[in-house]
Amino acid sequence: MVLNQKPRKIFLIDDDETSNFVSKIIIQALDESIIVEVLNNGQEAIDHFSKTDDPPDLVLLDINMPFINGFEFLDYYADQNWNGRTKFAIYSTSSRESDKRKSMSYEQVIGYIEKPLNEAKLKDLLQKFSGQ
């Protein structure tokens, strides 16, 4: 195993199309080999995680989504005891301290990114990921 571990597969769970579009470009601009997939809301994410044998290594999870928001998804995820390998980063436009604190209170969450995502923020996150 490589010491400087990087995620093989990253999921974007976000209902914001533009944000997904840009984030995907930014991630793949940094490292073409990373697989980036998009799930448009919490419900889609639940459906996917309940079926998949190949969960992502890292998820960028938005808070405000229709139906099931980011926090609700994390609660559900914790209840289901799914593969603990997946790490999460909350990324949202919210700059509220309470949102940041709440995000970091989840065991699987390794970081909080205030949107928009850019190269610097991504690098910082990947560093945290490899440090896990």
């Binding site: 533009t18 840009v22 949107k115």
Partner: peptide, 17 residues
Amino acid sequence: SHDLKAPLANIESLVNL
């Protein structure tokens, strides 16, 4: 405060691109 920020953030990232 929140929903206005989201499109703005998108514009910013598109501009960056």
